[in-house]
Amino acid sequence: MDRIKEKIGKTRYTYILNTLATILLFAVIYALINFGVLNRYQSLLLIPIGFNIILAVSLNLTAGYLGQLPLGHAGFMSVGGYASALFTLAVDLPPAVEFPLAILIAALSAAVFGVLIGLPALRLKGDYLAIITLGFGEIIRVIITNLKFTGGAYGLKGIEKHTTVTWVFICVTLTLFIVQTLMESRHGRAILSIREDEIASEASGISTTFYKVLAFTVSAALAGVAGALYAHYLSILDPNNFGFMKSTEILVMVVLGGLGSTFGSIVAAVVLTLLPEWLRSFSEYRMVVYALVLILVMIYRPSGLCGKYEFSLDRIISGEDEGLKKIKAIFHRKKSGKEEVGE
């Protein structure tokens, strides 16, 4: 493996590796659906899992990497959802043209709101930022409820169902790609430095205002993309689904997965989308159990399920992955434990 790496250069190797893995993952998902391993209901679950991943990963950009805690993510999601839905309702193009355009519009309009809200709100910190973004989120919701062209309190109905597993897969991949490449650049380091120490960051020549708004805006734009997928999946938009409860739900995913870990956000988004489904047999107790799980995880793992762990295919293949090493160590201990008992 190392010889291949040397021959084609490390970065190109990583690119090829990740591209191949992505295609493989997509093929596996398709095979699972088409060969009936996943039934229709299960394969439809892939869509909410997908947009929840986008929501969690994008919120992790501000909450985890930038270190600022916003509570209005659902607001950006609704902006994206409504903007894209109004677009697809208004125009009549083939889906393959219409939907990507709608997603782009969702991202851009949510980004505009991100800048407009981020500029004033990011002057505050900590819980004050949380409460002011919560305020902005609620204002967005109330305004949507009171506007005519958004369908008001009755919501927007009859949105074309464009969202497919393929589109979700593409959007998730793009989201991960954007967040990953951003964080591995000078811009990403600037964002991290703000989380670590804002005053030192300024003193190191970083325009903290610019990078705060940048991270916030990218995060908002991605939430808008999730909103577009959501709108064209459910085919109905109800403003009451974008309240602060939705925002806290997304935040819960991020913190549960581990603040500042994209991998953690993905894991938590998958788990928390599936958890209520698994708990279906508990029917009415499921939300109680959900709440208890949340409290217990926080008490016993305050830094989240994955801490700050990041997934890297390259590290795993070359056996340098810390998570993998830990798992190996656990197995090793068990194995050697057994041997001792045997002796």
Binding site: R189, L192, E196, D197, S201, S204
Partner: peptide, 13 residues
């Protein structure tokens, strides 16, 4: 310092 970042990232910032 940027405590939770690596030494080299501190300089790179």
């Amino acid at each position: 310092l940027f405590k939770d970042l690596t030494v080299i990232d501190n300089v790179k910032i």
